[in-house]
Amino acid sequence: MVVITHDDESKIETRNLNVYFGTNHAIKDISLKMQNKRITSIIGPSGCGKSTFLRALNRMHDIIPAAKVTGAILLDGENIYEDGTDVVDLRRRVGMVFQKPNPFPKSIFDNVAYGPRIHGIRDRYELERIVEDSLKKAALWEEVSDRLETSAMDLSGGQQQRLCIARTLAVKPEVILFDEPCSALDPISTAKIEDLMRSLRAEYTIVIVTHNMQQAARISDYTAFFLLGELIEFGKTAKIFERPCEKATENYITGRFG
């Protein structure tokens, strides 16, 4: 097997990123490189701006009128905040899985086919292939292949979250953002999602925001620690958890505050 190291290759990078909500300065001058086909986790106490940072990466703040973003975010070297960026295409390339599983009130099939359909795929055979493929990648196919036409709302929370991942995979993203994807799930479902993320790492660049430090330590290659909207420390996960440089990082990961 050929081993390729991507360690010096960043897929998505923020440069002096600031996010404001009205007068609230939520993200302060953060420059961070997220490596291609690696898992980067973002940890920090509640209100430190983790989710805000994540949502800047696919321009989800666009829908909040009071939000203002300055600085640059480069996806494959191109600034996604440049005028004339196709936000719709950006969000297809940078998918997002939310904290609370949010399947649409449609059948399992229609949930996964939603993305391909809005992007113009009409052919039933093609859609069936994408749905099966995506559900298999999301480790959900075995459980639902015999009831694709039933409502997604009848699935368990963990299954719903994997369905949301399958839905994201169906539009063939390059980057997937996970916003505390397991915080509403039980430990068994959490373990399944973590296994799934590990298997997705080969093909996708993953950024995950998590409250759960063990989760960050278990699955991520790189870890960034945020505090009060600032990036305190960033590095390889093992290093951050074993020999952090900053006192604040050490205090947080040893549970002295948070």
């Binding site: 989800m60 719709v88 969000r91 297809r92 997002m96 939603y114």
Partner: peptide, 27 residues
């Protein structure tokens, strides 16, 4: 209509009108 229906669809690259037509209005 829960915001998740809107955000989930937007995050897949839907336009606002697609979100409204396929996810918000039916609900």
């Amino acid at each position: 209509v829960p915001d998740g229906f809107r955000e989930g669809a937007l995050a897949l690259g839907a336009t606002k009108w697609q979100v409204i037509r396929t996810n918000v209005l039916p609900a």
